[in-house]
Design a protein around this nucleic acid. Structure first.
Lengths: 150, 150
DNA sequence: CATTATTGGTTTAATCATGCAACCATTCTT
DNA sequence: AAGAATGGTTGCATGATTAAACCAATAATG
């Protein structure tokens, strides 16, 4: 891939996020982490990812502060990968991706998984609103840039 | 990269979304499209992407129905790439990524760009709610899966 | 109207990331 | 104690990505 250029210097927050979780596997690992997976082998079986790549991705996610390596709760010396508070803040990203997929990437009759409120069983909704409560779409929003953005 | 495996068959909507926009460049192209860029050269200059890769990515995004190739509004025979309605539905994904970046990937004193309501200039907010209005976090949500998910 | 610059690519060669398979040390299970 | 599962590491082949050169069609310029 020839020195995939880092976006850390970019002033766009989206670009920096992609720099951390934008590669092919990381978000799938995070999705599985939200699903409750914690062990190396669980991720490996779920994703079918090569083990060396999984090793590398987990290390990167830990280094980025999205996952943390903690002693397994079951007691042994094994470790488990858990979402940090920062990792849990990726929740809206997961929900947004999920909703896009639900809306556009499934045939009408096709089954798909669904995100629901644990308490009521009702589907959850994602909303983008202004301070005054108005719903904001792409055309109502404006990205203010800092001078050096490029 | 050895035949990056397709996720089209996966029953997780997030996975399917990533199959469409999950590679290194696509979301950055979409971000620039939300920024108002439309021309091949504009994307190329903004991203510093190799031209053959940009060609390939734009073609894929058009094939996926996220961008469309329309005659340039300025009249010439040149074409421009525009977000389709489906492409605009990626807005929540962009906002979620942006907010994550703003929150975690910038030093406190560091400037960054900001997403605001065009009408009032106030920052926009992203909310995940249940039907009854309660805010939902990762621990209040549950992903219902279809049988074959794996 | 002839020349030059820009746009929007394609082609080619080199490079680096990825995937697969094999291997290994440690820890659990029986 | 033997075998299996866990959690990796290492090496090689593949191929995706890049930079750079090239090119045809259009737009701008004198």
């Amino acid at each position: 891939m020839v020195a995939r250029k880092s976006l850390k210097g970019d002033y766009c927050p989206s670009a920096r996020s992609l720099d951390v979780i934008g590669d092919w596997w990381s978000l799938l690992i995070v999705r599985d982490a939200f699903d409750g997976l914690t062990r190396f082998g669980e991720f490996q079986k779920s994703l079918g990812i090569a083990k060396n790549i999984l090793t590398e991705r987990l290390r990167t996610l830990v280094a980025s502060g999205i996952l943390e390596l903690a002693p397994a709760s079951e007691g042994g010396t094994r470790m488990e990968y858990r979402l940090t508070a920062m990792g849990k803040d990726l929740f809206p990203v997961m929900v947004a991706l999920r909703q896009f997929g639900e809306r556009h990437l499934f045939a009408p009759a096709e089954d798909h998984s669904l995100l629901v409120d644990r308490a009521t069983g009702q589907p959850v909704q994602l909303e983008i609103r202004a301070r005054d409560g108005r719903t904001i779409g792409p055309d109502e929003a404006l990205i203010l840039k800092v001078p050096e953005e490029k």
